[in-house]
Amino acid sequence: MDAILIQILNGLDKGGAYALIALGLTLTFGTLGVVNFAHGALFMLGAFCAVLFNKLLTFSTKVKDESITFFDAYKEQPYLELWFGDLGTTIIDYSVPLSILFAIPVMLLIGVIMERGLIKHFYKREHADQILVTFGLAIVIQEIIRHFFGANPIPMPPPEIVSGSAPLGAMLGLNENLVYPWWRLIYLAFSLLIIGAVFAFLKFTTFGMVVRAGMADRETVELLGINVQKRFTIVFGIATVVAGLAGVMYAPILPPDYHMGMDFLVLSFVVVVVGGMGSLGGAVLAGFMLGLLQSFASMNEVKSILPGIDQIIIYLVAVVILLVRPRGLMGREGVFED
C-alpha cells in the first residue's frame, strides 16, 4: 500500500511537470500553429530565472579567505546579509519561491520578443521549417546559458522549512515510515494551480473566449473585426510564462543545467501527441497519465517481469494509443491534418 501511494505521488508530480510543459506547447500550437521545439529551452530558462534571482540576492563582496594560505583566495559575503543580518539570510533562503515574481515578467518579455522577433516570420512556412528554426533557437539558448552559468548542475535548495520530507504515513494514519519530499508535494499543488488558472483564464474571461474561438475558427473571428494575432502573441507569452514557472519550481527537484530542457522536450511532445494535438485537456490528461505509468513501470516488481520497461513505457503506450486513436486521446478532427 505504501509503495503504491509513493508511486502515485511520484507519478503525479512528474506528470505535473509534463502537463505544464505540454500545456504551453499545445497553447502555442493551437493558437499560432507553430511546432515550438524551443519550448523545453523555455522550461530551462525558467529554472535559470531561479538561479539568476538567487545570484542577484547573493550578490556579494569579496572577503579574503584567510584559511587559504597557499595562494590568495577570496570568499563571498552577500550584501543582503551584511545589510539586513538574519532577515537577509531568510530572504536568500526563500529565493526559489520569490523568484516566481522575477520569472513572470522576464519570461513574458522573452516570449513576446521571441514571437515578434523570430517566430512570426515562420507562420506561413512549413512545419519542418518551424521545427528547424525553433530547434536551432533552443540550441542557441542552451549555449548562452552554458556560457554564463557553466555546464555543471547548480543546486537550488528549497526553503529550509520545506527541505525535508512530509510525514505522510503519520498524517494519513498509515505506516510511520512513509514520507514524501515536501517540495514535490508543493510542486504537485503548484502545477494543479497553474493548470487550473490557465483553464479558468481561457474559460471565464472575454480574452480567453476570443482565444478559444480563434483556435477553433480563426478566419471567422477575424471577419468579426477582432485582432486575433495580437491576442495569440499574448498567448505565446503566457505559454512561455507557464513553461518558465514550471522550470522555476522544478529547480529544487532537479538542479538546473543548460541541458535540462531537452530532457523534458521529447517527453512533452509525446504527451502532446498522445493527448491530441491542439487539445489543452488532452495535454493535461496525457501528462498525468504518462507520469503515473512511468512511475509504476519503475517499480522493481514490474521491472523484474519486464526488464527495462520503465525506459520505454511512455513510447510503448504512445504507439498503442495512436494505433487505436490516431488523433490522440482528445484530439479534434482537422488539426495538423492536411
Binding site: 509513493i6 511520484n10 527537484i253
Partner: peptide, 16 residues
C-alpha cells in the same frame, strides 16, 4: 541510464 536527470523513479523503490 547516464544523464537520467530525475532519479525519483529509481529512489522510490528503495524506500520499501
Amino acid at each position: 541510464p547516464v544523464g537520467a536527470g530525475d532519479f525519483s523513479q529509481y529512489i522510490t523503490p528503495i524506500l520499501n
